[in-house]
Amino acid sequence: MDIASRGSLRTRIEGLVILLVSLGYLWETFNIPDFYQLPDTPGPKTFPELLGIVFAAMGLWLLVSPRDLMARLRARSAPAAGTAPAAPAAADDHAAPTGGLFARLGLDWHFVALWAVVLGYLWFMPDVGFPVATFVLLVLFTMLLGEMRWHVVLGLSLAVTAVVFFGFKYGLNVRLPWGVLEPLVN
């Protein structure tokens, strides 16, 4: 698969996703309740409907816009992409893919691990509690960033967790949850 067709394929997929999102959005406008409205003036549905239609049109355009146009656009932006110091993900995107599907999508274990750690933190923090979740996050994330010395990782994570937790909770009155540590403090 050469670079050009990849870019084009991605544009088509983006178009499809945008179209689907806009259809879902438009579908949801049916669930907006009707309240009294001065006759002939836009109600709560008008604006979302308008937005949904414009968004759908944009998706449709990406999906079916003529191929030669895409090629021209690519030709114009290709030199720019070549000279810029490419970020790894961006580089993956433009380089010819090697390996399996995983790599072709620009994914590798590091990328997946990063997002898993970040999203996991956001998901579990309210229940697990701030101190434990934050400590785990800091340990994992620091290691993903290449710091492998255990004493540094643990020491730093503990220190940052403690300073941030107590600083925000008692200094700035942010209600941070103790979570699983609750039984210990009460």
Partner: peptide
């Protein structure tokens, strides 16, 4: 917050 308030 809810948890600590409930406990409180």
């Amino acid at each position: 917050m809810t948890r600590s308030v409930v406990l409180l």
